[in-house]
């Protein structure tokens, strides 16, 4: 009978619930910590510190159904306060106007509308992009941009939730997300060009 189990997971022994959720989410928490810290030892420490904090305030979590996002936000905040300890103003990263950069699109680089009968270059590029390529491009993003991309693309936070977590205005989330995505796509494009896995329709041009 699944019904009683669901009830117990929503209201049952806090410690058992917490441990089971951590077990279930650990690969995602570690993976995210790894992309934030870019170092496996730091990532392990970050997860341990964040989960210790999460347990300490577990009784403030109103609704266990939001455990996942709740614990993720604690992970983010733990990482950011760690940054603040090490550097004075990690979140001061401004987004300078650069429309051309913000409009950079990997799709536009590879898409060849008039050569469809030669194949599907954008699909070929996607198929050839390795996890390692994505990791390298993401790791190269400055902290402020990387965090927002991770929050929205990896954890599926809404812009409002991301803004609240980072304690910044909604517009800041939007501009960092735009820039972060553009930088990510440009980095992927550069890597792909260097590796020869993408042919530019214009013959190797890199805007």
């Amino acid at each position: 009978m699944p019904e009683p189990r669901r009830v117990s997971s929503a209201t049952g022994c806090p410690k058992r619930y917490f441990a089971a959720e951590v077990e279930r989410l650990l690969d995602r928490l570690y993976g995210t910590a790894l992309r934030m810290t870019r170092d496996s030892n730091d990532a392990e420490d970050l997860v341990a510190e964040a989960l210790t904090k999460a347990w300490a305030k577990f009784d403030t979590l109103q609704d266990r159904r939001s455990f996942e996002k709740w614990v993720f936000r604690i992970l983010v905040n733990t990482y950011i306060s760690g940054l603040r300890r090490r550097q004075a103003r990690p979140e001061e990263q401004g987004v300078e106007d650069d429309d051309a950069l913000d409009r950079f699109s990997l799709f536009e680089q590879v898409h060849q509308p008039f050569l469809l009968w030669w194949g599907n270059p954008e699909q070929q590029l996607l198929d050839k992009l390795l996890r390692e390529d994505i990791e390298r491009a993401l790791d190269a993003l400055p902290d402020g941009f990387r965090m927002v991309v991770i929050m929205v693309e990896v954890w599926g936070l809404s812009y409002a939730e991301a803004a609240e977590t980072l304690n910044v205005p909604l517009g800041t989330v939007r501009s960092r997300l735009n820039r972060g995505r553009a930088l990510l796509q440009r980095a992927l494009w550069r890597q792909a060009s260097q590796l020869g896995i993408a042919a530019s329709p214009s013959g190797g041009g890199d805007k």
Binding site: G31, R35, V47, A48, W55, E135
Partner: peptide, 22 residues
Amino acid sequence: KVADVGQSEAPDRLRLRMRALM
């Protein structure tokens, strides 16, 4: 593909550490 890189197999060491912590 970007979302996929947010998931990495946690090392056994971390799993054990978390169990000990809990």
